[in-house]
Design a protein around this nucleic acid. Structure first.
Length: 431
RNA sequence: UCCUCAAUAGCUCAAUGGUAGAGCGCCCGACUGUUAAUCGGUAGGUUGCAGGUUCGAGUCCUGCUUGAGGAGCCA
């Protein structure tokens, strides 16, 4: 007799196997019990017929409650009545624990209740599917970057100062010094690119913003590639190729998960490079045509603006060449138009908003020092970053992809809180 | 920080200012193919907190707390 997982049952038809499982539901009549079993790799229905099993096995199964844990032994049988095509004729049940009354019922729950029970909520089929797709997206990104010669470098999480200087940071003590939780690994990735050419960082980032929308988390994960000798245009090509690879990988490797999520596959099949590109100027014109007459050149787009622009395309769209004034200090001005920078935000379709922000970086040390002054950045704190422009400065570009927004988009979620196992949100640190 | 909405049984929600209810879940019982099984029954309440108006407040008013959606900021 073999100890297997539910994922493997198709190879054991007609054989007796034992599986470690949780019971997520039970339907029973007087002389037959249907145990709905899951083990994290899949689900299967266990069938007990009263006059075909030992009385003590029948009685033990009757005591099982929702989410009770057990080893179940039985024979795998092909059955067209089962959604998965297979059933288990149970011959023996070995209870590990009879669970207390499980708080998450089969019917609907409110957001607050589910978030308070996130540690149990992740057991449900939909959440399991999302976490699988998240893992597949991470895997696909790493495969793509590996195939393109990128090296993973891990930036620090405790940092001495703000990297972008704008948003609110989480403050902590670092012995006698002040320290902050990282809001981006980019500046460190730039340093690593000067050592390893093409690199990427992948890790958690933290923003103490009072943001409370479906697109924001306090703690979220970013993938930040940084490329020496690569200009803005080439960077956009990497971005669109990477997202195409991600979408195709999920389509190929997560069909059952996408089915569980009831995701419209045709939307994902359209994610193919190249993506449309419009300049900031053209985006402003588009918005004026669409009735957003309030927005003026030089202002940043709000969410309604981004959504309107995205609705005009059936693929993700790059918005390039934003005004220098509203963008980060390290972005390289367009040599022909210094009032705009060589940057792009990638806006996802279906209202998922900005999922990538990227730019070519300033490589001229004198211009960088000017920017330090304009943005009131401490020369001492950023001395090491200036060094990158003093010792063999090269053109280089990079971008940051927000993992949770990408997962929410690929899965078709209506909130990023379901795209990460344990979301950290405004006023929510538990569980 | 601002705007809008909400808070009643374990959960999801009802209840003209006039006796606090239903469905689901739990528990008990019936049922040999159930797919959120079905059917019958039992138990289950300081209506978020503190005041106020009223003969009478779950309901109206004030303040607070918590949550949800959005703005700003951002990925």
């Amino acid at each position: 007799m073999s100890m297997i997982t539910i994922r493997e049952v198709s190879a054991y038809v007609g054989k007796e196997v034992t599986i470690g499982v949780w019971m997520y539901n039970k339907r029973s009549s007087g002389k037959i019990q249907f145990l709905q079993l899951r083990d994290g790799t899949g689900t299967i229905q266990g069938v007990l017929v009263r006059n075909q099993v030992a009385p003590e096995i029948w009685d033990e199964a009757k005591l099982l409650t929702m989410e009770s844990s057990l080893y179940v032994t039985g024979t795998i049988r092909q059955d067209d009545r089962a959604p998965s095509g297979f059933e288990l004729d149970v011959t023996s049940v070995k209870t590990i624990q009879v669970a207390e009354e499980y708080p998450i019922a089969k019917k609907e729950h409110g957001t607050d209740f589910l978030m308070d029970h996130r540690h149990l909520w992740i057991r449900s089929a939909r959440q399991v599917a999302i976490l699988r797709v998240r893992a597949e997206i991470i895997r696909a990104i790493q495969v793509f970057l590996d195939q393109n010669g990128f090296t993973l470098v891990d930036p620090p999480i405790l940092t001495p100062s703000s990297c972008e200087g704008t948003t609110d940071l989480f403050h902590t003590k670092y012995f006698d010094e002040d320290a902050y939780l990282s809001q981006t690994g980019q500046l460190y990735a730039e340093a690593a690119a000067m050592a390893l050419n093409r690199v990427y960082s992948f890790g958690p980032t933290f923003r103490a913003e009072k943001s409370k929308t479906r697109r924001h988390l306090i703690e979220f994960w970013m993938i930040e590639p940084e490329m020496a000798f690569v200009d803005h245009e080439r960077s956009l090509e990497y971005q669109e190729q990477m997202l195409e690879f991600v979408a195709q990988s999920v389509l190929q490797n997560c069909p059952t998960e996408l089915q569980t999520l009831e995701r419209d596959i045709s939307k994902l099949e359209k994610i193919k490079a190249p993506f449309p590109r419009i300049t900031y100027d053209e985006a402003i014109e588009l918005l004026h045509r669409e009735g957003f007459e309030d927005i003026q050149w030089g202002e940043d787009f709000g969410s309604p603006h981004e959504t309107k622009i995205a609705e005009s395309f059936d693929k993700p769209v790059f918005i390039t060449h934003y005004p220098t004034e509203i963008k980060s200090f390290y972005m390289k001005p367009d040599p022909e138009r210094p009032e705009v920078v060589l940057c792009a935000d990638l806006i996802a379709p279906e209202g998922y908003g900005e999922i990538i922000g990227g730019s070519q970086r300033i490589d001229d040390p004198e211009l960088l020092v000017e920017r330090y002054e304009e943005h009131s950045l401490s020369k001492e704190t950023y001395a090491w970053y200036l060094d990158l422009r003093k010792y063999g400065s090269v053109p280089h570009s990079g971008f940051g992809l927000g993992l949770e927004r990408t997962v929410a988009w690929i899965c078709g979620l209506d909130h990023v809180r379901e795209s990460i196992p344990f979301p950290r949100m405004l006023n929510r640190l538990y569980p």
